[in-house]
Design a protein around this nucleic acid. Structure first.
Lengths: 253, 253
DNA sequence: AAGTGGTCTAGACCACCGG
DNA sequence: CGGTGGTCTAGACCACTTC
């Protein structure tokens, strides 16, 4: 860049790189297109591969890129808007909202889970695994914890494993009267099993949505859902307002 | 470890490191305590510093650690629960919820902003900057975009800059009838100016909360708030249920 | 087998904070 | 000033996908 290095605060190379790449993505690349490989890009910009990778990492974090080992780096489509808030006051599984039961089992709750469940401190909890698919993509993996006390009418552990059993727990849960629920969203990194379901590497950034389902007797169930942070935008429709449109591309003239 | 390396899928060193460190944090460290420096930790575990840093990065992303250049790495307190959803149907600035007006200006909207504002395509928008402080910590920085058409009664640009002007825009906005709002949450990285307000380095992971304020005539305003992803947990109280308690530490027996 | 991204190393220098 | 985390390099090898 010329001789004008008067910048008293020289921004890091990877940061500048990110800006340059971001503009290039807007102008010269279409969604789905594959970029040159990392070694060539690094050479082209005159930096080490590690530095180039730092820039790519951030762009992937922002949902601009998608990297797959053995395949390459491609331009990501706009993030998927995934509805999380408008299904007001419903038990899980009540609406056909893309959640698919996978399995269920009886386990002892971890310290963190029993803390969320509150004073009930049930000895056993049913653990239901579900996966959410939107537009053909696996966007979330959920673990739903239901204390045995919440669903007394449930058949014993002799029930067949698999989706059928998961559905049985959900069906039983829906018989309770739901008073309310509270939700929280935070950043996390995917555990190994969740990463597998989401087709990502372990440690991938995820949005962790924790929901407590409240009945008259306290917290009847807790759901911990992990959404792919790179491809998802969680939407909460606080009112009956129109849905947000899926980010139409402003085409350059 | 011993000689049992039968694991056909050897997990990455940094991943294993992260697990070991995480357990050490639970058992041997108190909140606020400073860890040994990176060079020593790397030596102690027999890995390169870059590898050690990869583990620390993930732990920081999960809110377990806090790193500050020139100071050191400390054990982070549990994430702050920041209420985002329960202030139902209110204009910004209506409740004393920790938001502090900083400044305001008149600008031309960027392509992304005018897309969010919808078909109105106003030529000018008022841009209000606010900061949110919770428990003494700056947790969020917001840019609120208000098309000039939404607040026709506002004095011209001769108004004094600074918080007073920001308050004037908010006051004018609150005269409209709010029909609803929709919100979305996604992962992003802090722009330079936001990072400064949040006392983080540029590129730090943030949760971007986008809110559209709807009136009878369309989208009257758009807010883009960036929350520190490392220290914040966004909470949405969908019902009048009790608040979630701030993660009491389970003491080992 | 060839090509991709993912992990790892052993150094170096820089920007920032504190005494 | 010394010590901290932040950036950067030039290599190497590994895991995975595709052909």
């Amino acid at each position: 860049m010329g001789t004008t290095q008067l910048e008293s605060v020289p921004e890091p190379k990877y940061w500048h790189l990110k800006t340059v790449l971001s503009e290039a993505l807007d102008q010269d690349f279409a969604v789905g297109e594959v970029l040159p490989n990392e070694r060539e890009l690094a050479a082209r910009f005159g930096v080490a591969r590690a530095t180039l990778r730092q820039a790519l990492e951030q762009l992937e974090l922002e949902g601009r890129l998608q990297r797959r080992r053995g395949v390459g780096t491609t331009v990501a489509p706009p993030r998927l808007g995934v509805d999380v808030g408008s299904a007001r006051q419903g038990w899980p599984g009540e609406a056909a909202d893309g959640w698919q039961p996978v399995d269920a089992a009886e386990t002892l709750p971890t310290a963190a889970v029993s803390r969320l469940l509150g004073a009930s401190t049930a000895t056993y909890v049913h653990t239901v695994r579900r996966t959410r698919v939107t537009e053909g993509q696996a966007v979330a993996a959920e673990l739903l914890y239901v204390p045995a006390a919440s669903v007394p009418g449930l058949p014993g552990i002799d029930a067949p494993a698999g989706p059928a059993r998961a559905r049985a727990v959900l069906r039983e849960l829906q018989r309770l009267e739901l008073l309310g629920q509270d939700r929280s969203v935070e950043l996390g990194s995917a555990r190994a099993d969740d990463a597998k379901e989401l087709d990502r590497l372990p440690g991938a950034p995820v949005l962790v949505v924790t929901t407590r389902y409240i009945t008259a007797t306290g917290t009847a169930a807790v759901s911990i859902a992990t959404y792919r942070a790179d491809t998802c935008r969680l939407t909460f429709n606080a009112s009956g307002a129109v849905d947000i449109e899926p980010t139409p591309q402003p085409r350059a003239s």
